[in-house]
Amino acid sequence: MLEIKELKARIGDKEILKGINLTIRAGEVHALMGPNGSGKSTLAQALAGREEYEVTGGEVTYEGKNLLDLAPEDRACEGIFLAFQYPVEIPGVSTLYFLKAAMNAMNKYHGRSALDAMDFLALAKKKMSDLNMDQSLLHRSVNEGFSGGEKKKNEIFQMAMLDPKLAILDETDSGLDIDALRIVADGVNRLRDPARAILVVTHYQRLLEYIVPDRVHVLSDGRIVKSGGKELALELEKRGYSWVKEQAGDTSPAVS
């Protein structure tokens, strides 16, 4: 579904991604781990099309298309979803309205007719209760005044509504208490599907106890330095990131 070859990207003058190679097939869940500053979030945002991250080399093929040619909103319409590490507030715009605009944009992109308002509301309510989330959130402004946990849950709710082919979760576990973490993980697990691929970006192994990945990759200084099965996450937890760095021959100190 997704094939990344030698992807390089920078912010301003700073090169962050120094040649990423990664292939994700439909039905797979991949975990991307790594110390702070290794480039995890940059990769997630670059895939979603954030313009500040300038791609300087390499290629990304998604469903046979050159992903880098697509505008960010078209990537979303093609089925890529990014759950933000820091979800953005939009005052005065209700979550319900926001999602409806999103779904209608996607319907329009695919030449489908707009969603019936009642069907949409029924779907939203169902997804909310599936995720064990408070329905009042639908009528509140997007992320405004939400707690950290509510924001992350809102991302998972949006993901469930938009039904992406490729879901990228950017440190969705950060700042969550154990109950919220379970709800989030449960929401992701519900979306596991032979037709869908999921990329979980995380700093800690904790989330992977709930979302068990098929593959684990370790990112260090802009490169994937180690890949393996789910046991790699456990090993990392025991040995720390310095172990991978030593193996990779990277002697620079970990950035915290």
């Binding site: 960010p72 979303a76 319409c77 953005v88 996607m106 938009l162």
Partner: peptide, 8 residues
């Protein structure tokens, strides 16, 4: 960008 990432 948040809106874009939702297809808007």
């Amino acid at each position: 960008f948040y809106c874009h990432s939702r297809g808007i």
